[in-house]
C-alpha cells in the first residue's frame, strides 16, 4: 500500500478536495461556518485558514498515530486531538487580530465539530500514511477556503460595496443589507450550488454526446 507511486496520486489527492470533492459546493459539509461567518471576504479567509490549519495538523498527527490508537477509543482520541488544535488556533487568532477574533466569534471554537475535519480523519487520515493524509487535508482545506471566499466575496461586494475592505463603487454605493443577513448567506450559497450543478450537467451532456 505504501509502495504506490506517490507523485501522481498526491496531485490527484490535492485536487480531490479543491475541486472534485469540494467540501462546500460538492459535499455541502461545514455549512454552519460557511453561512454564518462569510459576511466579508476577510472573515471568510480567516475562517478558511483556521480550518485548514486544524485539518492539516489533526490529519497528520492522527495519521502518524494511526497504528497506536485502539479502535474502541478512536473517536475520543480524534476529538481530543482536533480540540487541541482548535484551541491553538483560538489563541493564535487572538494574538494576531482581535478584530478577526470578534468577527468569527464562537465559530472558531465550533471548528471542533466541523464535520469536514472528523470526516477527513475517519475516512482518510486513519487509513493512510502521514504525507498522503497531509496532502489530502491541504486539498480539503484549500477547497473549503475557496468555498468560503466565494460566499464571502459575493456577500461583501453586494452587502458593503467592497472586497477585502477595498471600496469598489465609491462613497454612494447602496449596500444590499439582505446580503449580510442570514438569508443572504442562503441565497448566495444557493446560487453557487446552482452554478456548479449547471457546470456538472453541461459536462455530463458533453461526455454523453
Amino acid at each position: 500500500m505504501s509502495s504506490q507511486p506517490l507523485q501522481a496520486s498526491n496531485m490527484e489527492e490535492l485536487l480531490e478536495g479543491i475541486w472534485k470533492q469540494n467540501p462546500v459546493f460538492v459535499m455541502a459539509l461545514g455549512m454552519c461556518p460557511a453561512l454564518a461567518v462569510t459576511v466579508s471576504a476577510f472573515n471568510a479567509l480567516g475562517m478558511g485558514l483556521a480550518t485548514t490549519f486544524v485539518l492539516i495538523c489533526s490529519c497528520t498527527l492522527i495519521s502518524m498515530l494511526r497504528r497506536f490508537i485502539p479502535r474502541e477509543v478512536r473517536i475520543a482520541t480524534y476529538i481530543v486531538i482536533i480540540a487541541t488544535f482548535v484551541t491553538l488556533v483560538d489563541y493564535i487568532i487572538q494574538a494576531v487580530s482581535l478584530a478577526l477574533y470578534e468577527a468569527l466569534g464562537a465559530f472558531i471554537q465550533l471548528i471542533v465539530v466541523n464535520c469536514i475535519i472528523l470526516g477527513r480523519v475517519e475516512s482518510h487520515a486513519a487509513k493512510n500514511p502521514p504525507l498522503s493524509a497531509m496532502v489530502n487535508a491541504l486539498g480539503m482545506g484549500i477547497g473549503f477556503t475557496i468555498g468560503l471566499l466565494a460566499l464571502g466575496g459575493v456577500r461583501e461586494i453586494f452587502g458593503a460595496g467592497q472586497l477585502f475592505g477595498i471600496s469598489l463603487f465609491g462613497q454612494n454605493f447602496q449596500p444590499w443589507v439582505v446580503m449580510v443577513l442570514p438569508p443572504g448567506g442562503f441565497f448566495v450559497l444557493g446560487l453557487w450550488l446552482l452554478f456548479f450543478a449547471w457546470l456538472a450537467k453541461r459536462k455530463e451532456a458533453r461526455h454523453g454526446a
Binding site: 447602496q174 444590499w176 443589507v177 439582505v178 446580503m179 443577513l181 438569508p183
Partner: peptide, 10 residues
Amino acid sequence: AFVQAAFPTA
C-alpha cells in the same frame, strides 16, 4: 420582501 430586506431605508 427581498427589497425590503435589502434596502430598508429606501
